[in-house]
Computed example of a mutant assay.
Amino acid sequence: MTAYRALALQVPTVAINGAADPRAEIRAAIERVNARVGGAKAWIGADLRLVVLPEYVLTGFPLGESVAEWRDKATLDDLCYQALAKVATGHGVYLCVNAYERDEHFPDLFFQGSLIFDPSGEIVLRYRRLHSMFSPTPYDVWERYVDVYGMDAVLPVAATELGNLAVIASEEILYPELARALALRGAEVFCHPTSEIASPDLTQKAIGRRARAIENLAYVVSANSGGLSGIAIPGDSTNGGSELIDYEGRRLAAAGPGDSLVASAELDLTALRRYRTRPGMPNLLSRVKPGLWAEEYARHDVERPNGLDGAAPGRAFFVQRQRDAIKRLYGAT
């Protein structure tokens, strides 16, 4: 399949922080997603094959809860995985969803995962967010995580009929190393689940999306929240701006605020691959010099791996970790 339509499905997020029955709220969120995907497929057409959902669309995010509390409240169970698989199979789409997950190898923690289900309901990609301010990541248990899963699972790229898909979660769009590593592994389409400031001004993440697309000659399908309810943060702070960016940094489609399917466009893999194999100055990916930077990066001691021993940390751990990194960077006291 060399051309198809992709959708950054902008839907509201209902936070479960104060819910009496968080599991029921998660199930209700999946039902809302199912209805919206069905409506989008009917509206856009049968060539809609890739749907990206906003960040933590099923739960919202932890706001004062401990790692243990959020792990028990917000992580997916088997019924959730099955229900999400049915959304993909029922509508014949690849479905990218961002959600919190448990891991049997790290039972005291949770990870913020991004999953892609194919139209048969199989999970063809699972990415765990590597950069997070207040949540555990694989980097915090690095040696054991890599030992269990290997680097291909840390930086996954899924070869599919829709091209080579990868996921960049939320603020990770601001870290060029991640996108570049995925592109060097073959990624052609970056799925970007996010929940971010919606502003008429050009935001940092909006700049990041264009930069990552240009640097890596890749499409970016970025789904933002269509509003946030259930917590005290003003609901329209994260409302609107879902967009699709092409491999030259051009915006193909964008949504205004609210519950919306407007951020949909055709992705043309033939054109992308032709551009990637065309010699010239704009072919930035072919001009990368990994050997030039490998030694230099290795010299610098900033955020260190293996900060956790597997036990659930308190919020103070994350704050102190950053203080220590700042001290190493700038010699601050």
Rank of each mutant, 00 (worst) to 15 (best):
C80R: 02
F110L: 06
E55I: 08
A88N: 02
D78A: 15
P234E: 11
T277D: 11
A35I: 12
S132N: 13
G39N: 13
T160H: 01
R185A: 14
L285K: 11
K73D: 08
L58Q: 08
I173V: 15
E101S: 12
H105G: 14
E171R: 08
D47I: 03
Y219K: 04
L48N: 05
W70P: 02
G150P: 06
S135Q: 14
L125R: 01
G235L: 03
I207M: 14
A232I: 07
A42V: 14
A19S: 05
A311I: 00
A187G: 02
C96P: 10
L269M: 15
G230Y: 01
P282V: 09
G113P: 04
W293Q: 12
T59N: 06
T89H: 04
A158T: 12
L308H: 00
N283S: 08
K41H: 09
A83D: 14
R276V: 05
H105P: 08
I173R: 09
E243S: 14
G240W: 00
I214M: 11
L155V: 09
R299T: 10
A316H: 09
A153I: 06
P119C: 08
A223C: 10
A316C: 09
N224G: 11
P22A: 04
A218M: 03
Y100W: 08
S229K: 13
E188P: 12
V11F: 03
E295Y: 10
H131L: 13
H105Q: 15
N34H: 11
V57Y: 00
S237T: 15
P62L: 02
V11N: 07
F106W: 01
D21Q: 09
L292R: 14
Y330E: 12
A311E: 04
F318R: 07
T270I: 08
G18Y: 01
D108N: 12
Y145E: 07
R144S: 13
P257Y: 04
S195Q: 10
I168W: 01
A46Y: 00
D108F: 03
L53R: 00
I233V: 13
I123W: 00
L95F: 06
L292Q: 15
H192M: 10
V262D: 14
P136A: 06
G230C: 05
Y247M: 07
A206P: 02
P282R: 10
S260G: 07
P313K: 00
L50P: 10
A271W: 05
Y4G: 09
P119R: 01
P234V: 11
P313Q: 04
R278K: 15
L79F: 13
A8Q: 02
G208F: 00
A153L: 08
E196P: 05
P257L: 01
Y127A: 14
R32S: 06
A68S: 15
